[in-house]
């Protein structure tokens, strides 16, 4: 079961199996959608602005390699 919590700044935050994920375009010239697991605090931060959402993405990428969605 997947629920969309928010869709802002080109990012989608979803809840799946009680975990939060941020989904976004991988940013390459030829791209697809990828996701990283994030914390509740990061999800709240990513709601605020595009810059904050980007910080969340970079921090999440440092912890774990993103996985492909689409």
């Amino acid at each position: 079961m997947e629920t969309v919590i928010s869709e802002k700044f080109g990012c989608k935050i979803i809840e799946r199996n009680s975990k939060l994920f941020i989904q976004y375009d991988n940013g390459q010239s030829a791209s697809w959608i990828i996701e990283n697991e994030i914390t509740k605090e990061e999800a709240e931060k990513a709601f605020i602005s595009g810059d904050f959402a980007y910080e969340v993405i970079l921090a999440a990428q440092k912890r774990n390699k993103p996985t492909r969605v689409i």
């Binding site: 990012c11 375009d25 940013g27 010239s29 030829a30 791209s31 697809w32 595009g50 980007y54 689409i70």
Partner: peptide, 22 residues
């Protein structure tokens, strides 16, 4: 510039920090 996507974009394209293009 051009960006190619595997998906059908409906809003902003690329992550918030910017995107690579050719």
């Amino acid at each position: 510039v051009t960006k190619i996507t595997s998906y059908n974009p409906t809003g902003s394209v690329g992550p918030p920090g910017g995107t690579f293009v050719l």
